[in-house]
């Protein structure tokens, strides 16, 4: 593999039902700064059927948009997505490709990396360029977030990484930007003979998808029982927030597994994380410690959760949370 043949930064955008997803703009933000450091073009691949508003991708920082257009790409299937992306990479030869660490990105990227025999680093929190080597530096938490590792892919291309959604802001809109939109048709090679998408079912217990949420209110064993846990849900409702939970709370059956945050659940980094009745075991911290702002409410002043918190209230959740809800409601009504 001649690494010099590969040039440019590509991000793998995401669409849901033909609408560009916000995570695409986050990727463009990261991609733009890498491309500028390298002095190369930034492109964005969008896989889907009909996709609205591809021009927005240009305004948010892409120089080129490749829309691989097919009804076989309307919903995510690993086979067609992998074949489309491998074909696009072989045609356009980007030196770097970045995707979101969503269920789609975390599935298609390893498949593509294995097909191309190149390296992939999952869940990066920081990306940079080594100016001397002109190489991508990929930093990610390892071992439950207790250690950070910086990783590179020196000998193969493209250099591939996924980044956690919500770990950066969306690229700002610049109306003066121009760029090129190319539609790629790959025809029958995208038809899957071995996979069939049946249906998507929204999970009603998950009104706000927690990994997409700006604010998460999360509860642990300190809430005592299912009734107590409802406090967390009520505070979340007032804040328009997602509901999170510790492993203990999930195992006690207070809420479903899809809300579990931590090593064996989801990793989140919202703007605000409110931990209620959570002691702060390392396993839980691993899933939330990159949150922008962390507020902890716990009656034990020595609880470990306070070490990662920006703001801590030592007190009984059953008194603090209702007061907080009242104060927030008053704020809303301007009273």
């Amino acid at each position: 593999m001649d690494v010099k043949e590969y040039r440019g930064v590509m991000v793998l955008g995401e669409q849901r039902n033909g609408t560009i997803h916000r995570v695409t703009f986050e990727l463009l933000n990261r991609g733009r700064s890498l491309a500028d450091k390298l002095g190369v073009e930034l492109s964005c691949a969008i896989l889907g059927d009909r996709v609205d508003d591809l021009g927005e991708v240009i305004l948010r920082g892409a120089d080129k948009v490749y829309h691989v257009c097919s009804q076989d790409l309307a919903t995510f299937l690993p086979g067609p997505y992998t074949r489309a992306l491998v074909q696009l990479i072989q045609e356009e030869k980007p030196e770097i490709i970045i995707a979101a660490a969503t269920t789609t990105g975390r599935t298609v990227m390893p498949l593509v990396a294995a097909r191309l025999g190149t390296g992939l680093t999952a869940d990066c929190t920081y990306l940079d360029i080594d100016p001397e080597e002109r190489i991508l530096l990929q930093t990610r938490p390892a071992i439950g977030g207790n250690i950070m590792a910086t990783i590179k892919t020196p000998f193969t291309r493209p250099q591939m990484a996924t980044v956690r959604p919500r770990s950066t802001r969306p690229a700002p809109r610049d109306e003066s930007r121009t760029g090129e939109i190319t539609v790629k048709n790959y025809g029958d090679m995208l038809v899957s003979l071995t996979e069939r998408f049946l249906e998507f079912m929204a999970d009603p217990s998950q009104e706000v998808n927690i990994q997409d949420a700006d604010i998460i209110v999360s509860g642990g064993k300190g809430l005592k029982n299912r009734e107590g846990f409802k406090l967390v849900e009520e505070l979340a409702r007032v804040l328009g927030a997602g509901v999170g939970a510790t492993r203990d709370a999930v195992e006690l059956g207070w809420i479903s597994y899809s809300h579990q945050i931590g090593l064996s659940g989801k990793t989140v980094s919202p703007k605000l994380y409110i931990a209620v009745g959570i002691s702060g075991k390392v396993q839980h911290l691993a899933g939330m410690q990159t949150s922008e702002t962390i507020v902890a409410i716990n009656k034990d002043p020595d609880a470990q959760i306070f070490q990662v918190a920006d703001f801590g209230i030592v007190g009984d959740a059953f008194e603090v949370v209702p007061e907080l809800i009242d104060a927030l409601k008053k704020l809303r009504t301007g009273a």
Binding site: G117, T118, G119, L120, T121, L137, P141, A142, G145, N146, I147, M148, A149, T150, I151, K152, T153, P154, F155, T156, L285, Q289, I294, P301, F306, Q307, V308, A309, D310, F311, G312, I313, V314, G315
Partner: peptide, 20 residues
């Protein structure tokens, strides 16, 4: 294909404002 360039400990603790 990947190489670890370096490992380091992240700063875990934040400056916490505490109220009782």
């Amino acid at each position: 294909p990947t190489r670890v360039v370096k490992i380091f400990s992240p700063k875990l603790s934040r400056d916490t404002i505490m109220y009782r």
